[in-house]
Design a protein around this nucleic acid. Structure first.
Length: 175
DNA sequence: ATTTTCAAT
C-alpha cells in the first residue's frame, strides 16, 4: 500500500478497513510464509474486509492435513457479524489458527464485545497493535521507499488504552 | 460532540 494509505488507516481513523495478512505453513517447528501468502485488502461496499479475506482463502488450497497460521493487521476490529462468520470458519477449519492484531476497536455496531469474546472463544488470538506491529506493517506492506518507521505522538498511549479496553471486554467486564 | 468508526437504518 502507499504511505498515505498507511497513515490514514493505521495511524488515523478512516471510514474504511484495511486488512494486511500473512498466511504461513507450519514446517517442523517454524512457520513458513506461503507463496502469495502475504497481501492486503480493504472492505468493499457492504462487504467487510474480513469477509473479503475469507473469499480469498480457497485460492491457497490449504491442505487440511497440515497446520497453518493466519496473521492479520487490521485497522478496525471485527464487528459481531464478521466475528460470527470467522468463528464458523475456524470451527470448520481446525488446521488454521488466526491471530488478529488490530489498530483499534470498532465500537460502532452493537454487540462488538460479544463478537470479540466469541472469536477468542473459538481460539483466535486477539491483540491491539503496538509499535512492533505498526513497524512490521510499515516495513512489510507499505511502499516505504527505504524510510524507517516513525512512531507518531501518542502511539504507545493509545495502544495501551485500546489494549486495556480489549482486556476488559475479553474478561467480560463492563466498560 | 470524546475526536475521521468497514454506509447502516
Amino acid at each position: 500500500m502507499d504511505q498515505d494509505t498507511f497513515w490514514s488507516n493505521f495511524a488515523n481513523k478512516e471510514r474504511k478497513t484495511y486488512l494486511c495478512y500473512e498466511v504461513e505453513l507450519l514446517d517442523g517447528n517454524s512457520w513458513v510464509l506461503l507463496e502469495e501468502g502475504r497481501g492486503f485488502l480493504h472492505n468493499q461496499l457492504r462487504r467487510h474486509a474480513e469477509l473479503c479475506f475469507l473469499d480469498r482463502v480457497p485460492s491457497w488450497q490449504l491442505d487440511p492435513a497440515k497446520r497453518y497460521r493466519v496473521t492479520w493487521l487490521l485497522s478496525w476490529s471485527p464487528c459481531t457479524d464478521c466475528a460470527r462468520d470467522l468463528v464458523t470458519f475456524l470451527q470448520h477449519n481446525s488446521h488454521v489458527s488466526l491471530r488478529i492484531f488490530t489498530a483499534r476497536i470498532y465500537t460502532y455496531l452493537k454487540g462488538y464485545e460479544e463478537g470479540l469474546r466469541s472469536l477468542q472463544g473459538a481460539g483466535a488470538h486477539l491483540a491491539i497493535m503496538t509499535s512492533t506491529e505498526f513497524e512490521h506493517c510499515w516495513g512489510t506492506f507499505v511502499h516505504n521507499q527505504g524510510t524507517p518507521f516513525e512512531p507518531w505522538n501518542g502511539l504507545d498511549e493509545n495502544s495501551q488504552e485500546e489494549s486495556m479496553k480489549l482486556q476488559r471486554i475479553l474478561q467480560n467486564e463492563d466498560n
